[in-house]
């Protein structure tokens, strides 16, 4: 069963095509990630899927409802955590939650219980009298998640939820997302962090408004059209320049003391061939592709380590 279905979803702002013919199929209960650089159409896509923006073209069905026509009926069933903190800075944590509970018409008897439960779950009990404006980034984000889930939505949209949060809080946040997912909530999350995307059940890689790839992170890694090698040795900067001249090399990026090299699979290179080319002063080994490699392989020019001027050479 699909929570979100979209065919040819597009959105134009004047002459600018922000989202171009994106197809989506998000199964119920899945944590689905939109991975892409800033300005790739992640937020615009999420806004179309919540009914905030009407698509310029294409079909969208969310929880069986056609958008944007049936957007109102969808509101009670979805939760939305905006990219920017959108609760009230001059209200306390408790007041913010009481306000949101009122808007979602949670009965007053149930309300205080639900709020207490959320305060405990998101470790905000000792902060309930504190104004939201003076919370830390991590606390604000937990409050926003609590508010977005107060009415137990079956589908949750999170637009770059952890962009203002330290790694420690990010891990904790994802634990909560897995709890929600475990309880049956479908989650759509946008991010530009690789480690965050790697936690998703499925991801779609977006670039310039287009979907470049989608699947589970491991699927995407195995389906990658390139092999990944790590090379160590002297003068890696010059070596990188030389390697980028080769048509077999998709990209080369220095990572610490090593050079991470993506080589097109279709040329059938093995480690030995690469080692022969590099010479004895370099050591090289084949490594497991990371999601970043997948991202680079699928988006090409937009990312560091690529070589835009050689991209058209087969």
């Amino acid at each position: 069963m699909l929570a979100i279905e979209a065919q040819g979803m597009s959105r134009r702002f004047g002459d600018y095509l922000a989202v171009n013919a994106v197809d989506l199929a998000v199964p119920v209960g899945c944590i689905y990630g939109f991975l892409g650089p800033n300005g790739c159409g992640k937020s615009t896509s999420i806004r179309m899927l919540t009914g905030l923006l009407a698509p310029s073209a294409g079909q969208i069905r969310v929880l069986g409802l056609h958008l944007p026509e049936q957007a109102e009926a969808l509101r009670q069933q979805i939760g939305y955590m905006t990219q920017k903190f959108s609760l009230y800075d001059n209200l306390t944590v408790l007041e913010n939650l009481q306000f949101v509970a009122g808007i979602y018409r949670i009965k007053s008897k149930e309300q205080s219980m639900r709020i207490r439960e959320l305060l405990a779950l998101y470790q905000l009990e000792d902060k309930q009298k504190v104004r939201a404006g003076s919370l830390s980034g991590g606390q604000k984000q937990r409050l926003a998640l609590a508010a977005a889930t107060i009415h137990r939505p079956s589908l949750l949209f999170l637009d770059e939820p952890t962009s203002a949060v330290d790694p420690e809080n990010r891990r904790e946040f994802w634990e909560r997302l897995f709890d929600l997912s475990d309880a049956g909530t479908t989650i759509l999350v946008s991010t530009h962090y690789m480690d965050e995307a790697e936690r998703c059940h499925r991801i779609a890689i977006l670039e310039r408004g287009e979907k470049r790839a989608d699947g589970s992170p491991s699927e995407l890694m195995t389906q990658m059209p390139a092999d990944v090698y790590e090379i160590s040795g002297p003068q890696l900067r010059q070596l990188r320049q030389q390697l980028l001249m080769l048509p077999e090399v998709m990209s080369a990026a220095q990572i610490g003391q090593r050079l991470r090299l993506l080589v097109y699979k279709k040329y059938g290179w093995r480690t030995e061939q690469l080692q022969r080319r590099l010479g004895a002063e370099y050591s090289c080994e084949a490594v497991r592709p990371s999601l970043e490699d997948v991202f680079v392989a699928n988006t090409g020019e937009a990312y560091a380590g690529s070589r835009p001027h050689l991209r058209d050479i087969p």
Binding site: T50, S86, I103, R105
Partner: peptide, 13 residues
């Protein structure tokens, strides 16, 4: 202006 609107219009209000 303060960015509360995007959340608010996504609720059933």
């Amino acid at each position: 202006e303060q960015g509360n609107m995007e959340f608010l219009i996504n609720t059933p209000i």
